[in-house]
Design a protein around this nucleic acid. Structure first.
Lengths: 336, 336
DNA sequence: TCGATTTGAGTTATCGGTAACTCAAATGTA
DNA sequence: TACATTTGAGTTACCGATAACTCAAATCGA
């Protein structure tokens, strides 16, 4: 590998002069600068960022830890983070925890040893708290994305889960539905709790009873099981609409319904949180509360860099991004 | 930050002893080992991988450069690479070129300065050749994924594009279609050329004429424009089926058709290369040639690590992974 | 013209690890 | 008992960059 010492020798200057040319610091005569530049070009010199990081105590690397790389919400978020990172001069080290605390811990260890300057952290759930504490102990700034973690004080970019859920359910109520099921993920995750709360809000605001038998909690990390819907469909008074708490759950619901010969929206309406990305043009055209995923990534990264470069003068700041209700054709008026 | 010198001081040993305990090398008495371990625990020591990389001339980081993070093919591939990397003890630095040579070049520069041990490279297209040469000049091993690049000799994991395309088109021919359109991406990409060739193969094998007016090349990097299909639909003898050369193009085709009031498969059949990931259960249930995306990532990473750890004794090796024809309901018998 | 300042560099130490070499004490052997 | 070997460390140099300090030559001002 070519080093600044190679450049220095060939150009007949000291290594420090080469370093100054690279970083455009100090006083260098135009002639020297030109000569050094030319030698760097000839030898195809590329700075060793490890060496630089070691002495500068700054890597210019940020880490983005997402919970599911297969989910369009997170990939869109990742793109937002990536664009912002490039714009602000940082490299981005991705990690995908797959909603698994074990994998998440492995990534945190890697983050610590890599000495990244900061972390954009979409936690797997409440169990991520120890991992966040670890970052704090090592004074690595981080910003929480999408999910809140109880007991953790930090900058956060959150969605309007509760209100978005309320609006989705009120949309169904407005269509005449009264028996509305909630298919939710694990309540170990803040967004699931919020969406559950929003679901109850909508019912209460419209004087509908909250019926626990209409609420299912599914741990879909190891796949959606069609029989998971059995308890709902076997009710003496089954639901006429289903609110799925995220896009994956919605797809599982749709597939399960189809396997039973039930059509969406003809037999049941289905709505969900989060859009489907590039697949949203496919049928059933899901009615969703779409979150600005790109903004989660971009704004989160900007906040993180602000923390890194301007210190932590202010306390934790929380940014709530609105969800947009997109009414498509997966939800329709209740047949009476 | 806690360093081995801090550990050494507290434990009353030399830094080298700490290093030996960490790496389990040299001879250390059990008592010393235990004491050092305890101090490391107490001070929450985490090794600085920058410093280690600097002296070892090895980072234990691999880079994965994909062409589109929004495409399920690449995200599935990424997961395969990630799992394999973890299994083999490497960290993975993601990059997303967005099918853009400029962004790709930026990532290559970053890769060079990070001194990664190797690169999994899904090139944007033929124009990636200079970037690959750059890697070669700096002796960074890489494996090409999914797309071949003319003039480049390297390990490659490729799909069965030509044969897969042939099978898809013969599937349509078998359903009675004779006017089959090809909606392809830029021929700057090897897979587009291969799929075009497979399309011609199928026609020739079945004594159908090759009609240039049925072939469209779209640069969909800045979105699919519904009017792109006009020339096809305005033909005096319009197609009864469309072969879209990848999943994104298929979605664009489906949307364009719908905007014209044409239904799939009632009015036209549509088939495509690559599956849709989690959205494949949505309608129209696309008939596809599905590629083993996860294997692209996993096998590619294994090949790369083999190169890194066992040198380049053998010449470039190419692995061709088969595509699986999945017949769903977006294609049906031609109405006569 | 001569000291003061500016310009354009070079020297040295350091970041946090590890390889290679060294060496005293403990242990083994004849 | 005396010497050889093994054990369990410590010392030193180096990876490739930069900060801080130094310093001779060029330029400047009175």
């Amino acid at each position: 590998m070519v080093t600044i010492y190679d450049i220095a020798r060939v150009a007949g200057v000291s290594a420090m002069t080469v370093s100054r040319v690279i970083n455009d610091t100090g006083r260098i005569s135009e002639a020297t600068r030109k000569r050094v530049r030319q030698v760097m070009e000839e030898l195809q010199y590329v700075p060793n960022s490890n060496a630089r990081s070691l002495v500068l105590q700054k890597t210019n690397i940020l880490s983005l830890l997402i919970a599911d790389i297969a989910n369009p919400f997170y990939t869109t978020l990742a793109r937002g983070a990536e664009d912002a990172a490039k714009r602000l001069g940082y490299r981005l080290l991705f990690g995908n925890s797959d909603e698994d605390y074990g994998k998440e811990k492995d990534y945190v260890d890697m983050i610590l040893s890599t000495r990244v300057d900061g972390v954009l952290f979409a936690p797997a759930g409440d169990g991520s708290a120890p991992h966040l504490r670890l970052l704090e102990q090592h004074r690595i700034p981080y910003v929480l994305l999408d999910r809140d973690v109880p007991g953790i004080q930090a900058d956060r970019i959150l969605g309007e889960s509760r209100d978005g859920a309320r609006r989705l359910v009120e949309h169904l109520i407005g269509l005449g539905h009264e028996r509305i099921a909630l298919v939710n993920g694990s309540e170990d995750v803040s967004t699931a709790r919020e969406r559950h709360a929003g679901y109850r809000d909508a019912l209460k605001l419209n004087d509908l009873p909250y019926d626990e038998t209409l609420v299912r909690h599914l741990d879909y990390s190891d796949g959606f099981n069609p029989s998971d819907l059995d308890p709902l469909l076997a009710l003496s008074s089954p639901p006429t609409a289903i609110f799925a708490a995220n896009n994956f759950l919605a797809l599982g619901v749709i597939q399960s319904l189809r396997e039973r010969g039930l059509a969406v929206p003809d037999d049941l309406s289905v709505v969900c949180f989060d859009d489907l990305g590039f697949a949203s043009i496919l049928s059933p055209f899901l009615t969703v509360a779409a979150q600005p995923a790109y903004q989660f990534g971009a704004l989160g990264l900007e906040r993180l860099v602000d923390r890194i470069e301007n210190g932590d003068g202010s306390g934790p700041r929380t940014l709530i991004l609105p969800a947009e209700l997109i009414v498509r054709s997966s939800s329709r008026k209740r047949e009476r």
